[in-house]
Design a protein around this nucleic acid. Structure first.
Length: 475
RNA sequence: GGGUGUGUACCGAAGUGGUCAAACGGGGCAGACUGUAAAUCUGCUGGCUUACGCCUUCGUUGGUUCGAAUCCAACCGCACCCA
């Protein structure tokens, strides 16, 4: 019987989340046997770039990987790139990045930490640790860095790296010395975490494998000195020591990567027509304005996962057990139309990021808007009931109530003022195609809105197609 | 610095004096069918107009012409080659 700590890698493998891994067998053994007196197990880290004040679902994979690590009985370490974020990672980027100011980066680090507190457990023996690499990179002197760190890097090796090579051979988009050095900083991060906190594993996306290996290399080189001074956590009696006899502890440093998330239709994961899917709805807890991605939109994103992707996403993103996932996959195969797997995915993710209360609201709204005979598609019987969530998630505009007096105004004119149509012509097109509903009822091409159209609260709810809503307020 | 190309709508790409709001493909939006999928089919895709039609647009600015995306000039951008 495996212990949870051992099972970490197998879990990742089941979920298709193990792409590359250094010394897999040794890593498995390493995870299985943390030294006595360390209830927190082993320590692994993943880095995050504070380029925005929130994270998108593209960033979800590393957070979830850390949480899996934690659930397996180990200690996750979140490294906020407050320092590296000032530089910018050239991986996968075709153009030099714009530099952020230090204030921007600091603010982003603060804002993002909410998300980590939500998913990771910061209490108990395996309490997650959050650190900011500005704390050690910020104080690094240029000369010291060149002497102590830079000496271990061969430029010949660095220019072989894919992320750099691409930019070197691109005639009109070169790479600055700044971004070229990014690799060194990331490697130094790993070294620093290893030395001061005993972090022995770095997790990252497959595009990070090169950087991770460079970090491992650096630890082997710089660490040779440190071993001599007998760092206590390096004395790991249970650790495998077969590889390098004279320097066993230095061998116990690992990297593992997951594959980049792809969609079956080749589209970019995490992007919709209306932009990226964010993990938070608001700028901060005090903010009440609708922005980012509402819980409703978040839920809908997952619910609309393509059939071909749904099982993969369950494996990648949820903490459901292998049995539950296998079961859902079977049910999905048996009756795709029922969309049980989609619903489970959407529920799980929404609850994880937004909590049970929000999930409940979102599900009510979904039911009201989409189920047959619900408020939005009532088809004539009973008053239209506007789901509360729509008020906060749908785009809203305010208009002068005087426009509704008497004959009111043509619906065409109103649509052109909303996010639903860019011009009257477009509005007319939509109307003639029976795409527009007012307060849940299909609207005629020559329809007008009057005071009689108003819902309680002075609102009129417009819908284009099946899913696109716009709320108008009248005052 | 020299040469040769090239610039058309959201993107790609036809169009080389009137019949051009500009073929075709992709993308987008909507409808039908379904499951709030996928695939398929249909419509729309510069603006205003119930409509006839009108207005603005083919890198920019001028010019030739009754008439210019199309011809001329200058300028700007981009690509490749030479230095």
């Amino acid at each position: 019987m495996q212990t949870p700590r051992q099972a970490f890698l197998d879990d990742l493998r089941f979920r298709g989340q193990l792409h590359q891994c250094t010394h897999e067998a040794e890593l498995a053994a390493h995870l299985a046997s943390p030294p006595a007196g360390t209830p927190g197990g082993r320590r692994a880290y993943a880095g995050f770039d504070p380029t925005a004040d929130s994270l998108t679902i593209g960033n979800l994979v590393p957070i979830i990987a850390l949480r899996r690590f934690q659930l397996a009985g180990h200690t996750p370490v979140v490294v906020m790139g407050g320092g590296t974020g000032l530089i910018g990672d050239p991986s996968g980027k075709t153009a030099e990045r714009t530099l952020r100011t230090r204030e921007e980066v600091d603010a982003n680090v603060q804002a993002q930490s909410r998300i980590f507190r939500r998913i990771l457990d910061f209490t108990g023996p395996t309490a997650a640790v959050m650190v900011n690499n500005i704390d050690w990179l910020g104080g690094l002197s240029y000369l010291d860095a060149l002497r102590d760190v830079g000496k271990h890097f061969s430029v010949n090796m660095m220019i072989q790296k894919e992320s750099v090579k691409e930019r070197l051979h691109n005639r009109d988009q070169g790479i600055s010395y700044t971004e070229f050095s990014y690799m060194i900083l990331q490697a130094y991060d790993f070294y620093h975490l290893w030395k001061t906190m005993g972090v022995t594993l770095q997790l990252g996306g497959s595009d990070q494998f090169g950087n991770i290996v460079v970090g491992i290399d650096l630890i082997r080189r710089m660490g040779a000195r440190d071993v001599m001074s007998q760092q206590p956590w390096l004395a790991t009696p249970g650790a495998p020591s077969s590889r390098v006899v004279d320097m066993p502890q230095l061998d116990a440093v690992f990297g593992a990567t997951w594959p980049l998330v792809t969609k079956s239709d080749g589209g970019k994961f995490g992007k919709t027509e209306s932009g990226a899917i964010w993990l938070t709805a608001r700028q901060n807890d005090a903010d009440t304005s609708p922005c980012r991605t509402s819980p409703f939109a978040f839920y809908q994103f997952w619910l609309n996962t393509a059939d071909a992707d749904v099982v993969k996403f369950l494996k990648t993103f949820t903490f459901l057990s292998h049995e539950e996932i296998t079961d859902l996959a079977a049910r999905h195969a048996a009756d795709p139309g029922k969309r049980e797997a989609h619903a489970a995915l959407a529920r799980h993710m929404t609850e994880l990021l937004h909590g049970p209360e929000e999930l409940e609201k979102v599900e009510l709204a979904t039911k009201a808007l989409f189920s047959k005979g619900g408020g939005a598609d009532g088809g004539g019987d009973g008053p239209f009931v506007l789901p509360e969530d729509l008020l906060s998630s749908a785009p809203t505009t305010t208009h002068d109530k005087a426009l509704l007096a008497g004959q009111g105004m043509p619906l065409v004119d109103l649509l052109a003022l909303t996010s639903l149509a860019k011009s009257k012509t477009e509005a007319r097109t939509n109307l003639s195609q029976n795409a527009i509903s007012v307060n849940g009822r299909l609207a005629a091409a020559d329809a007008r809105v009057t005071e009689a159209t108003l819902l309680p609260g002075g609102l009129i709810a417009l819908r284009r197609g099946k899913k696109t809503w716009h709320i108008t307020k009248w005052a």
